[in-house]
Simulated scan of single mutants.
Amino acid sequence: MSVSTCTSASLALGEPVAATAATATTWLLIEQPGPWGAKALRASRLDPATGGALERLAEGTGVRVALIRRPGRHADLHRPRRHRVYVAHTAPGASWIRTAEVTDPAELVRLDFAALGAGTHSGFGEAYDGAPLALVCTNGKRDQCCAVRGRPLAAELAASGGSEVWEITHLGGHRFAPTMLVLPYGYTYGRVDAHHAKGVLEAARTGRVVLEGCRGRSAWDRPGQAADLAVRELTGEDRTAVLVVDSVAAGEGSWSVRVAHTDGRAWRVAVTQVAGLPPRPESCGAALGTPGRMEVTGIERVAGGRADAARS
């Protein structure tokens, strides 16, 4: 098979996108126009010392830090006097977005990252109550597919209106480009075209989740993402009413995940990690690899202390 990019290789192999989302309970997004390097927090017009400090402070807290900029060529030229900042917590039933403008992003090192990761904003900024945020990965220094496929998508979404659209430095999964994160819910999508993305954002405005192309909710680990999406597929539930209660290792490369619905129903989902074969590049120019893929091997409905087999 002859392929030229990581995205075309992934598509040709029919690689599923489910359970591949970056994990983060909370996102800290900092406006920084201009060119971005592969490691953008340390390679952009953001002071690298500030970027490095933010990375260190976020480590182990559940907070993921990324840079954002407005779509369009002006994003490479404009130096803002102030930087728009968003903090978005993605846990079901407790999702929120706070926003502020700062003169110097170095001010953000004073944030309580552990509290942010746990869902406490401590009064940062003000509540954001606008349309869902759409973040499209466009960092060509990280992977060419993100720029080639992501920037046209971001530009079209911004031109169509109805959503707050930004380019973002990194969402993981280059081979699924274009990729898009929707906040505050934290669901990530892969291989999205403009028509699909607009449908996803329209659904998000009413608190619904589109399953097509969904990579998972960032609040969950990868086994939890697989279980969440499997229960949604089984039940047809598209509201933000599904909660991953726990994800317990059940052996090497396998997990037992409990998923609950706000109406009282619950399921136990068996998830196994398998190697993605045959080998394929996870990024353009990278060596061939076998990225781990989460497979759901069984779902049991649990109610009143007993399990009712739903699917295996």
Rank of each mutant, 00 (worst) to 15 (best):
L54A: 00
A12F: 04
D246V: 01
D76E: 02
A91P: 02
E237G: 12
K39G: 12
G123I: 13
A204H: 11
R56A: 12
E107I: 08
T188F: 05
H174W: 04
R268G: 04
V148I: 14
T169K: 00
L133M: 09
T103C: 00
A91L: 08
P132H: 10
A147D: 15
R56G: 03
A12I: 03
A303S: 08
T61W: 04
A88Y: 05
G125D: 15
Y185G: 15
A88W: 02
L67M: 06
I68H: 00
L229K: 01
P71R: 01
K39R: 08
L201D: 04
I30C: 08
P279F: 04
A266N: 04
T90E: 08
D263N: 11
T99E: 13
T103G: 13
A24G: 12
A287Q: 13
V165S: 03
A309R: 09
A230V: 07
P48R: 01
G236E: 09
D228E: 13
G199I: 03
D238P: 04
T235I: 09
T26A: 10
S10D: 10
V296A: 03
R82K: 09
R98Q: 12
A127V: 15
H83N: 11
V210E: 03
A22T: 14
A18T: 12
P92I: 02
L111T: 12
L288E: 15
H196M: 06
W267K: 02
E295M: 11
I68P: 01
W255H: 15
Q32K: 05
A147Y: 13
V165L: 05
L234M: 10
E156G: 06
C145Q: 09
L29K: 07
V269A: 12
L234F: 10
G292D: 10
Y189G: 11
P48L: 00
D193K: 01
A226D: 09
H174E: 15
A9H: 10
R98H: 07
G251R: 11
E15P: 02
V63M: 10
V271A: 13
D246G: 05
E233A: 15
R258W: 01
A260C: 01
R265V: 00
T240K: 00
V269N: 11
G173T: 10
R45C: 02
G207W: 03
A131M: 05
A197G: 08
G161A: 15
V102D: 04
D238E: 14
R191E: 09
G72L: 00
C146Q: 04
T297W: 01
E126P: 06
G123K: 09
A127T: 15
L116S: 12
L288D: 11
V148K: 13
G123E: 07
L13P: 05
A88D: 08
A9E: 06
A270D: 15
T103N: 00
A260E: 06
A88C: 05
S218K: 03
L277A: 02
V231F: 02
L29P: 07
P279S: 06
